[in-house]
Amino acid sequence: MTTQQERRSGRRASAARTDAGLPGWVYLPALIGGIFIVLPLVAMVARVNWGQFWILVTSESSVAALWLSLKTATASTLLCVMLGTPMALVLARSRFPGLRLARSLVLLPLVLPPVVGGIALIYTFGRQGLLGGTLEVLGIRIAFTTAAVVIAQTFVALPFLVLSLEGSLRTAGRRYEAVAATLGANPTTVLRRVTLPLVLPGLTSGAVLAFARALGEFGATLTFAGSLQGVTRTLPLEIYLQRETDADAAVALSLVLVVVAVLIVLVTRRRGSEGVV
């Protein structure tokens, strides 16, 4: 307990020293930026029909979309952890020709418009796609199924986990791994007993961010998976459709996503703070 209090006191003192060095004019654009982010959220909350809120968010289509979003986002997050952890380890710990190009390609979905990602997935896994034709012959159809939703979400969310974990690996350094190797531990043991526990806060934060990105995915999902209720229509797609027919329902469902996003940010920040030494 004493150690935790000392760390918190040290962080507060450090923050105080940082604040003391800021020029006064910085606070004005910072305030404007904060208002720019918060004001639209306040406007949305003010627009919510609270009398019908529970009815709107518990309609059959809304509940189906919410559960589908939660299930597919969870599945895509698991895929991100399974694929992204080795990718981050290779990018952070390996040295090979083309490493910068490999890192750029891994992070490419961060800057690609989601619709472009969806089109790329169609031409990969669609019926006439690079792999889709072969899969169709084997009786496996991916495009416009729930599996397509998971793939689209994984495609756009994977870089978030890789980026977060790679940063944690670089910050942690290699000194503990070197000590463990010197003591005779094999690479797998070093990875399992030293590396992964050391960067667990970064892995957790990356997984949470990947889940949040998957939960809010829209463009790639709509392009690659379509919008079939109970099959591919996730909550963002349901909000988009409701906006055209029932604005109150769209606002209510949007508020649900905002609340989930706030909780995710709080969890991520808490994990990040716990990882600070």
Rank of each mutant, 00 (worst) to 15 (best):
R12A: 01
V57P: 05
L31F: 13
V149R: 11
T2K: 02
L70H: 06
F211E: 05
V149C: 10
M44R: 10
L196G: 00
I119A: 02
A30V: 12
L169G: 00
M87F: 11
A249C: 10
V162Y: 08
S69V: 10
S205F: 12
S62R: 14
A220I: 12
V150M: 06
A148W: 03
L253K: 06
G139H: 01
G216E: 14
L101E: 10
A172Y: 11
A92P: 04
R100G: 09
T188H: 15
I140L: 02
A64H: 07
A261E: 09
R269Y: 15
T3S: 08
L222S: 04
Q4Y: 13
V90Y: 07
G126M: 14
G51M: 04
L28P: 04
N186H: 11
V208S: 05
M44C: 02
R93E: 01
L163F: 04
Y240S: 11
T72H: 07
V57K: 05
W50N: 02
A147Q: 06
T77F: 14
L263H: 01
G219P: 05
A43V: 12
I119L: 13
L56T: 07
V81W: 14
A43R: 14
P109H: 15
L78I: 08
V162A: 04
V149T: 07
V137H: 01
S164G: 01
L241K: 08
V259T: 04
A172I: 11
A152W: 05
D19T: 03
Q128V: 00
L108K: 01
S227G: 02
L198E: 03
L235M: 14
G167Q: 15
T3V: 10
T146V: 07
G34E: 13
I239E: 06
I119S: 02
A43E: 14
R192E: 05
A143R: 03
I37G: 00
G21F: 15
F144E: 01
F53M: 06
Y27L: 09
L266I: 11
P197I: 00
G117M: 14
L105R: 04
G118P: 10
A75E: 12
Q128M: 00
V26F: 15
G34N: 10
A261G: 03
I35E: 02
A120F: 12
E217W: 11
T223Q: 15
R174P: 03
A210P: 10
P97Q: 06
R93Q: 14
P201D: 15
R100H: 14
T85A: 15
L130I: 00
L237V: 09
Y176A: 07
A178L: 14
A180Y: 09
V45G: 01
S59F: 13
V190N: 00
S9A: 09
G275F: 06
S59H: 10
E166D: 10
V137F: 04
Q229R: 06
V179F: 11
T245P: 10
